[in-house]
Design a protein around this nucleic acid. Sequence first.
RNA 1: GCCAGAGUAGCUCAGUGGUAGAGCAGAGGACUCAUAAGCCUUUGGUCGCCGGUUCAAUCCCGGCCUCUGGCACCA
Length: 520
Amino acid sequence: MKSFYITTAIDYVNGSPHLGHAYEKVLTDVIARFRRLMGDQVHFLTGTDEHGQKVQQSARKRGIPPQQLCDEVSAEFRALCAKLNISNDDFIRTTEERHKKVVRAVLQQLFDKGEIYKAEYRGFYSTRQEQFLQEKDRLPDGSWPEIYGEVTEIVEPNYFFKLRAYQDWLVEFLRGHENFIFPRYRQKQVLEFLKEPLNDLCISRPRERLEWGIPLPFDENYVTYVWFDALINYYSAVVDKPGIWPATFHVIGKDILMPPHAVYWPIMLHAAGLALPQGLLAHGWWMTSGAKMSKSTGNALNPLDLVDEFGVDAFRYFLIREMNVGQDSDFTREQFLARYNSDLANDLGNLINRTLNMTNRFGGAQVPAAEVAEEPEREVHALWDKTRDEALTLCEGFQFHAALERTFIFIKSINAYIEKRAPWKLGKSVEAADQALLRTSLATMAEALRLAAALLRAVMPATTDKINSVLGYTPGAVWREELNWGNRLVGAKVAESLVLFPRPAPTPPAVGNKPAGPKS
RNA sequence: GCCAGAGUAGCUCAGUGGUAGAGCAGAGGACUCAUAAGCCUUUGGUCGCCGGUUCAAUCCCGGCCUCUGGCACCA
């Protein structure tokens, strides 16, 4: 079985989960579920990044130990995974011993090889904020903003990793692996960036400034800083699990593609003699009216509430259907409702319910066998084969939004097929030919629905299960075989009815000067 | 400033060297198994702006405008 190891970025615990985190987890989960269905041996890792200045400061502000803060927030991210029905196999925290051990081992190894050296770091330091500032922090007139207090240029000994020595190697590597980064144009960006010489990477902070971190194994007066801690989680989580490394894909936000994942990480691995991942998948951001969606912007709408209101599958469907992986998308309640009502409630949900109803009313609650295959049936069969083939290809290329689009075209075609056959008319006829057509139409709509549901499995797993359940069907172990048109449902006893995606109560018209709707 | 991506119907987007397509929204119709859902028909666009190449450009070239992102030790 082919091994497929996929990761999300680990989330920094200095803030609560928001839509961006949710999207990355859902996207990665859909890929993981899809690969499992395709027969790969999948290992899916997510987790939390827990060290650093900001965590230390936040904990101090609240008067609690940093570990307690990490425990609290990390639990929130775990809860998010559960809420979103994420199928991760492991959840790593950078404060776990299994991780720290590996970070120290890798650092020691690189130090012994001479890849890490001590030198002086020079920069502008804000005592009040306890951090070094960058040129871009300056005001246009060259002075430093008030919040930094007194800023002084200081020189501090630190440890550096020899990034620059590997710059040419990295350029060669990327030229030789054109599909290393998805989407492709991002790889060009990285190569463009690499035309400028790299500086070596400062990987340490003195302990008197930063306590909350992993001590360098070769100098306990320092802790390692950010990347040698965070990135190594991908490796530390599986170091004792044979057959998983290297990663197949790291799914990350475009904001941490360059330089960390596209430059530091490959060089770190190469320098340490470890195999490189097959690829990086950089996704875009959700925006609201052009503004990045995050907690700090104080957007009134909390998209995660939609999970409680409409169910996790509806939420997952929206994220995957609406976002073209790699690009940015807008998130509005209106767009969500449009998708929910049109695709899920009207097209799919209603199709399920009417299929159950008709099977009960005209078929004695049992799926009959198809007896004829005339033009309408042949059209549905042909469209299914085309839909399945295209959808699989699209999913393999991360074009899930397009795969869902095709799938829903097929679902709509089932509705159209039903109108063509009009079983409610056939049901009134006593002619043998009409009765055969009736049985055929009931069989066809049920089978088409089963197939459509199977194709949705990676995106809406609970929905697929429910549809199978009301169709009285238990799917077989091999998903690919489930995608073939057949007669598996013949004789199945179907449920009476199912309203899967109930239409939301109509919003009261926003007229007059009444106060806005009830606050719950 | 440099680099990259994007500017196509009210909205979200697809697309091709030969005077443009889908879904949603809007309008009309026939039906009734169904979540007043579904089905059929339909309105709607000088394809960002200006030039050029071509018999012909939305798609090729040049310039410009606008939006988004990256530009290093910052998550």
